[in-house]
Design a binder for these strands. Structure first.
Lengths: 135, 135
DNA sequence: CAGTATCCAAAAAGATACTG
DNA sequence: CAGTATCTTTTTGGATACTG
């Protein structure tokens, strides 16, 4: 750290503003909501998994992307990486307490979306009916 | 439409699996959690806004990105677009009921992250201390 | 097994200009 | 004002190969 006199960002205070660019929590929120972040956390929700198992679980993710995502989530303290000793290597990933509490909220969100899919599909159909495919 | 005999994806049933590629809810979840989706929804949380006001609120977003994001969210039924008549144009965007309920969950998530930022910053510092910057 | 390294293709972000 | 069009630059994604 050292006295960085950043005019600084979002007071974690009453009104919160992740909306501000430069807010320190914004990149963190992006890690957990981003393309693979959310799915990776949800993939670990039911218990620890090893790299390949997790990769199979998060359908469609590339090794590279999974590695990157896990690194970011580990750095932010959402995921704990436990490298077992021995060979061949067995590394387990598990949610930290912070990761678990966060994932619970993420799950609530995903579950809500899932339950309201009928409305979403209806909205999409209506939209497509009234909007030109692409002139 | 038309009888697509998709072997199809994620039963909205008991165990849910957004994790599956091809799951219809996955792209929707991505729209609301994606790079700008979340911030745009949060930007509308306190009330309807017009395009430029929203753009100012979601700090750093480009016109193009905002237009795209709003289109996706409108199509999914999270946002309602209300084009006022007259000139110059005044278009208002507001959350639908579905958008509002979803955004409430998103807010809970963002708020949780915000409140735990001290832990996140500590984790990041610890990580950076023990991991080589880049050899 | 658990990754890293590479290379290429595809997509997204940015900046600028222009229209109803 | 509310966008679209266009072009350029960066980031991603995907496939393949290789190492401890």
């Amino acid at each position: 750290m050292s006295a960085t006199s950043t005019p600084n960002p979002c007071p974690s205070a009453p009104r919160f503003e992740v909306l501000a660019r430069g807010c320190v929590s914004r990149p963190v929120l992006e890690h957990i909501t981003g393309r693979w972040g959310a799915l990776t956390l949800l993939g670990l929700r039911e218990g620890p998994l090893r790299f390949s198992a997790l990769r199979r679980r998060v359908d469609g993710i590339a090794e590279k992307a999974l590695a990157q995502t896990l690194r970011a989530l580990e750095r932010d303290g959402f995921v704990h990486r436990d490298p077992g000793e021995g060979y061949p290597s067995r590394v387990e990933y598990r949610l930290t307490e912070l990761g678990a509490s966060t994932t619970a909220l993420l799950y609530a969100l995903a579950d809500h979306v899932e339950s309201r899919m009928p409305d979403v599909l209806a909205a999409q159909a209506a939209y497509d009916r009234t909007h030109p495919p692409r002139p």
